[in-house]
Design a protein around this nucleic acid. Structure first.
Ligand SMILES: NC(=O)c1ccc[n+]([C@@H]2O[C@H](COP(=O)([O-])OP(=O)(O)OC[C@H]3O[C@@H](n4cnc5c(N)ncnc54)[C@H](O)[C@@H]3O)[C@@H](O)[C@H]2O)c1
Ligand SMILES: NC(=O)c1ccc[n+]([C@@H]2O[C@H](COP(=O)([O-])OP(=O)(O)OC[C@H]3O[C@@H](n4cnc5c(N)ncnc54)[C@H](O)[C@@H]3O)[C@@H](O)[C@H]2O)c1
Lengths: 231, 231
DNA sequence: TTTTACCTGTTATTTTATTAACAAAAATTT
DNA sequence: AAATTTTTGTTAATAAAATAACAGGTAAAA
């Protein structure tokens, strides 16, 4: 029991990092490497080597002393943990700029996470194929989700449509939603929700830019104290 | 001193939430509301009312008992803290699907965070205008960044161009980078870096979908214990 | 062969973040 | 006018995450 399900107690942050490690490992593999040290992974991910080793300890993966971790092995172990054995099907609702950017980026990258359908309300888009996946009418949303057993919905519709669309997804029995629309939505218990807003990320970067600048200004005042006297 | 700079000690998570609160407050203001309770903000953001009140305590903003917080006031207070007084200019490097989606979304939404230029290597895009902003050649990147005093770079170029482009941004004296390219990049001290990968977010959602399902399966076994005996 | 340098894996400690508990005050009800 | 309800603001307690400390082992160097 413990052996089988230990990953259910993994910290949320570790789950995120495992996905990031795997991405980094794929890149390293492409570059012809076979082994990697914790400090190398750490450098790529901008974290500490201890953090990496601790995460790997939690998933009970061991490397070789002085040789590091076997990249392909580690990819397999991480995949075992974070991927669903049978794969999870996803759909994009709202095939605009963002929806298509997501589709293009994700499509074909992970074999256990497949985008199998798009939905839109615009007649010009309905029936068309984008990156090899078909765009359905939102009117068929509930039916298609059920029929194709789609569990994950990626929401990229305009803000004023977010609430209704979410309701349809929930009605269809969706299991998780990644909401990129500009309005927060609500889901019932049992549906996992994640929301992301680029403006928040941008504002965070802007805030720390401003803070760094102010701290530099203060530091230079200390070097020339006569300049920073008046108060 | 303490009064002037207290926000430098705000937790990182609080900074993120302040941006999210402000977004929610804008929406409420649009809906004609003037006041809001902590539990209402909490409900929108899927967090607890205590979290909200604690954040507001940290920024020393007080509401009115039994009336809640004045929305416009609170927006102003948050803006004072997270916005730069003189505004921060940003540029998008890589005007593809993603770059244009970002541009379209962010453009004009925040008056202290302005996207003022795009850059691309594709001759068909260079010189064109998207959403009212001009697309320059990457060859002019360093010059334009310096000339226009652009401090924030949004990276949405293909992965194999990420490293070089970052170097150019750093050379030009950029202060912060938001990297959406599929390869992690490195920056020197003093440059604030944030990276975001949709696949990581998707994989996280997929992981918790899988976990929820397995937990439900186990729970139903407990209800029909005879079914789940064999080990 | 001994020493040194270099990594891993784990436990202990510290820091950061969240939640709980509760006092105080204003509006509302009885 | 007393009691009740509702909501804020703050301190105290808990939980989650990150970092530090270090033991132990292996390869390479001396
Ligand atoms: N969260 C973020 O970081 C972020 C970033 C960029 C854009 N956005 C937001 O995401 C949304 C999509 O952005 P975009 O640039 O692709 O916009 P867009 O206008 O290009 O695309 C929206 C698409 O949704 C379709 N649509 C409209 N109503 C619909 C409905 N009821 N059901 C299904 N489809 C419907 C439209 O036909 C269109 O194709 C916008 O609301 C935008 O504000 C969010
Ligand atoms: N992090 C994420 O969540 C995420 C999501 C979607 C896409 N992506 C990635 O972001 C990048 C952009 O995605 P997209 O869908 O817009 O791709 P795209 O191909 O539509 O856009 C890339 C743009 O970059 C331009 N470009 C190429 N080399 C350049 C250079 N040296 N300097 C400046 N511009 C250059 C191209 O001309 C093109 O306009 C891709 O690498 C994609 O994999 C990341």
């Amino acid at each position: 029991m413990r052996i089988k399900n230990y990953y259910k107690n993994l910290p949320h942050k570790t789950i995120e990092r495992l996905s990031q490690y795997r991405r980094a490992l794929f890149i390293c593999l492409d570059n012809g490497k076979t082994h990697i040290f914790s400090h190398e992974i750490a450098q790529i991910q901008h974290i500490t080597p201890v953090q990496v080793r601790r995460d790997l300890m939690l998933i009970e993966y061991s490397g070789t002393l002085r040789k590091g971790y076997n990249i392909q092995d580690l990819i397999d172990v991480i995949s075992d943990i974070i991927d669903d054995k049978d794969g999870i099907k996803a759909a994009i609702i709202g095939m605009g700029n963002l929806g298509r950017a997501v589709l293009k980026y994700v499509r074909g990258k992970r074999n256990k996470l497949e985008i199998v359908a798009g939905f839109d309300s615009n007649p010009e888009k309905i029936g068309k194929t984008f990156e090899g996946i078909k765009c359905y009418s939102v009117e068929d949303l509930e039916d298609e989700i059920k029929k194709q057993n789609i569990k994950l919905g990626i929401l990229s519709v305009p803000g004023d449509k977010a609430k209704d669309t979410t309701q349809h997804l929930v009605n269809a029995g969706i299991k998780g939603i990644l909401n990129y629309s500009p309005k927060p939505v609500n889901v019932p218990d049992g549906v996992y929700l994640e929301e992301y807003d680029m403006i928040t990320t941008l504002e965070k970067v802007a805030f720390y830019i401003k803070m760094n600048e102010e701290m530099e200004k203060e530091a230079s005042k200390k070097d020339n104290p006569e300049k920073g006297k008046g108060r």
